[in-house]
Computed example of a mutant assay.
Amino acid sequence: MDIIQRNLFRLLRSGTFGDNSKIEPMSEWKWNCLYGISVAHGVSALVYDGIWKRKNEFFINFSDCLRSKWEKHVSDIEQHNIHATATVAALVDEMNKEQFRPILLKGIPFASIYDNPLHRQSSDTDIYFPYMPQAKKAAVWAKNKGMNIDESTKHSLKYIYDGILIDHKKYMQRLTNPMLNRKLQQIINSEIRCCDSAYVRLNGVKTEVPPPTLNLLLMLVRTARYILSNGASLKQIADLGMFLRKVGDKVDYVKLDKWISSLSLGQMASLEGHLLIELLMFTEDEIPFIHHKKDNSIDNMLDNILLMRGTQSVDWHFSQGKNIFISNSNSGAMMWHIRHSGKLFRFYPSETMTNFFSSFANSLSHIEE
């Protein structure tokens, strides 16, 4: 890693896990690069927490202009999170009264386990309804209460509620491999119906979230899907680390290992664990789901993690012009996906291929009939 990356991770660890590794001196240009990377990965407020804790260190010496911009950015995140938390709490309270049984996923519930919940950046709010009758009633309720209803994606219903984007999910999490996805849905359905529910409090409202063991599995699957499609996200890695530190003692790792094995997730889960070790200074003892040794391929992932290329599958969709020819919107992005999938194939072969072809099929849907 170069000096910008080293300082980025030192400050992220300092802001989240209390690490005090010394900062190396950098120019104003490099500090601006560090700021840009932290914003792109959604961890700018957490990194600034690290700066604030170490504000008197000699080498924390960027300009007042950058400091003001950073502080304004952090303030905007705080104001958004205050409003989002209040709005989602009121939404959940109404849905609880209607007995829809909303289960809140990632986002705001993850923020609640951070020392400063307002600094965990979130975007939309995902809600899952475990029973179909309640899900249908919740959809009708949303269409009456919400604005800008979006049903363009068959697995979700999106709408704006008091300025916050809400997403009713048909699935807590999905895999593109049909056989593995059936197993994942069986795990989710069984766990939601048979085990004790878990809750967090949002502005005093009791809010259901996935049980800890299931929640950790969902995090591992979600991070795997993101790595396969876009490269790794620092926010997801920070979430995973924070969850292990704050909630890990409530996880049944024997059950988790069985699930990981049934989903053929072992090597990818180990890769995620090694990222925690390399980037956030975790120890292997803290990550019970690591069952594969680190090899040189982890170094390639470390190089890849900081490359925000904007190469999501939407960037290489196909379209048809006025003539009969079909063109690709971004051939460079498509080639990146092909190379990226090839590098990751060994970590999750059963999902890597279907994930790529699923993205390819979705890109073809842009072609007009």
Score class of each variant (00 low, 15 high):
1 M>E: 03
3 I>E: 13
6 R>Y: 09
7 N>A: 08
11 L>F: 08
12 L>G: 01
14 S>D: 01
20 N>Q: 15
24 E>P: 00
24 E>F: 13
28 E>Q: 15
32 N>S: 10
35 Y>K: 02
43 V>C: 08
43 V>F: 07
55 K>I: 13
58 F>T: 15
59 F>S: 08
71 E>H: 09
71 E>Y: 10
71 E>N: 11
72 K>C: 10
74 V>Y: 11
74 V>K: 03
79 Q>C: 12
79 Q>D: 11
79 Q>K: 15
81 N>R: 02
83 H>W: 15
90 A>G: 00
96 N>S: 06
99 Q>I: 07
106 K>P: 02
111 A>W: 02
121 Q>D: 05
123 S>K: 14
133 P>A: 03
134 Q>C: 10
135 A>P: 00
138 A>P: 10
140 V>T: 12
150 D>H: 11
151 E>L: 11
154 K>Q: 07
158 K>A: 04
161 Y>F: 14
168 H>I: 09
174 R>E: 12
178 P>V: 06
182 R>W: 08
187 I>R: 07
194 C>S: 13
194 C>R: 12
197 S>N: 12
198 A>I: 11
202 L>K: 05
206 K>P: 02
209 V>Y: 05
210 P>T: 07
219 M>S: 12
226 Y>K: 15
229 S>D: 12
230 N>T: 08
231 G>L: 04
231 G>H: 03
234 L>G: 01
236 Q>Y: 13
239 D>V: 10
244 L>S: 08
244 L>F: 02
245 R>V: 04
245 R>S: 12
254 V>P: 07
260 I>A: 03
267 Q>W: 08
273 G>K: 02
280 L>W: 08
280 L>A: 00
282 F>E: 02
288 P>A: 05
290 I>G: 03
297 S>I: 00
299 D>M: 13
299 D>K: 15
302 L>Y: 06
306 L>Q: 05
308 M>I: 00
309 R>Q: 09
311 T>D: 13
311 T>P: 01
326 I>V: 15
326 I>S: 05
334 M>W: 06
336 W>P: 04
342 G>F: 10
345 F>T: 04
348 Y>N: 05
351 E>S: 04
352 T>Y: 00
361 A>K: 14
362 N>Q: 09
